[in-house]
Design a protein around this nucleic acid. Structure first.
Lengths: 248, 248
DNA sequence: CGATGACTTGACTTCGCTCAAAGACAGTGG
DNA sequence: CCACTGTCTTTGAGCGAAGTCAAGTCATCG
């Protein structure tokens, strides 16, 4: 009974050892490798915790809507959320999925750019914008961490654009699965947990729901990836997997 | 003789009244409208000018290559540059075009993410990373300006992803022309200056060169946009133009 | 256990891609 | 000043991949 997934609880559930919000990113500066780094110091976390309220949300909860007044910024402690916009045509485009230790709340002219909604049960820190700004005025070190995190997001956005520009659905799917793998703690596992629905994946990849299903099917027939149930995949042929990811 | 374009000199040539580098963005915070704002104060510009060297480059000059060691950050004073990556397939994907008062030099683990190349003759400020970091340590106000600029870039990247995810070439073209219009000083002009080649546009839109040409042709036949020469367009039917832009 | 939403599969259409070849432009040197 | 040359652009024909529509299955939650 391989489809038995206990309760749709995601494995993106890092136990945060220290109290207070946590942020991670791959630094821009010189580094031996491309590993994630914890950005915030213990006192910074505590200071942020001081101005934050913590809340827990069930799956499918809307955190805020696009174009509503942006008064908060959020940092995820546990869970997965999606950031999307519904287009005039009725189509939905998911700009990003956010996981533990990510920050979100992007605004333009005082209003949120995207709608944010939980995918799994989520707990997060809610920070008032003005409170955060005050801290940023005082602690330049904190600003630099935030700049690092934002640089990380810009790079992720570039990759997403490259992904979406691909023409072949299986290729997009493989690139997407790769980004999911990077979220894992134990990187050398073949198992990929897929917390979001096929429909969410379609909205993120910029293809139709059916094309996602067919791409999965194709990858399975080619012996590259096994999909077991709706929320788990296993990489069978790593060489082929990487080859497809790099193809276009 | 409408095709007579004097010397390929772009109109993205803002006269910078004050000395030193300049940055602009649409702020995240509350604002009456979505207008660009000059981010740097006069003393900040002077301080940045103090640690910068200024250089002028002809068109088609490579500023730096992807994966080379990232030692500088650049701010454009005048001109247009493209930021791109060549994919294993030989295809090229342009991540962004940068104009006057933009900053670039994104790195990951000490190496540049994209290759940067000038499109028009360009003059820019070159800042050493360590020098800039030092300034950021001292002046939290400067950090906040930079954060604002980066937030702007993230929003632009989201829009680009939405653009690239569209299926119809004319729609992508119109969205692209719209972003070009936003670069202009006098916003209520119908004339759009297109400094880059069709091939660059194709690499940015994620479609083939031929598809770009056909999209332009189609828009012209539909009476929405006139293309005069290779580097100028006129919006003929604004209503239709906006409708196509918002379609998907 | 039943209902709702998520997923899968098939048939047909559409649109952009590829390949190929011809036309227009801009910068060069005579 | 002009012809030249390489690059950039335009146009055409045929192919393939993803979109859409429609029908049916599965699973998850109350």
């Amino acid at each position: 009974m391989p489809a038995a997934r206990a309760k749709r609880e995601s494995p993106f559930t890092f136990h945060v050892p220290e109290p207070g919000p946590s942020l991670r990113a791959i630094p821009s500066g010189m580094a031996p490798n491309k590993d994630f780094v914890r950005l915030l110091s213990k006192p910074q976390k505590l200071a942020l915790a001081g101005i934050a309220t913590r809340e827990s949300l069930p799956a499918r909860a809307v955190i805020y809507r696009a174009d509503s007044v942006a008064e908060h910024v959020f940092i995820i402690e546990r869970g997965v959320v999606k950031s999307f916009r519904d287009l005039p045509s009725g189509k939905r485009r998911i700009a990003a999925f956010w996981y533990a230790e990510d920050i979100f709340g992007l605004a333009e002219a005082g209003r949120y750019v995207n709608t944010l909604q939980t995918i799994t049960p989520t707990s997060l820190y809610r920070l008032r914008r003005d409170g955060l700004m005050e801290m940023l005025q005082r602690d330049p070190e904190l600003d630099i961490q935030l700049i690092c995190k934002m640089a990380h997001e810009i790079r992720a956005a570039y990759r997403h654009t490259i992904l979406v520009a691909r023409r072949d659905a299986p290729g997009r799917m493989v690139m997407f699965l790769r980004t999911l793998m990077e979220q894992r703690h134990d990187t050398n596992s073949d198992t990929i947990d897929i917390p979001m629905t096929r429909s969410d994946i379609a909205a993120y990849l910029g293809i139709s729901l059916e094309a996602v299903v067919r791409a999965c099917h194709k990858l399975e027939k080619a012996g590259v990836v096994d999909f077991v149930g709706r929320h788990t995949a296993h990489v069978r042929n790593h060489a082929q997997f990487e080859k497809i990811a790099a193809a276009l």
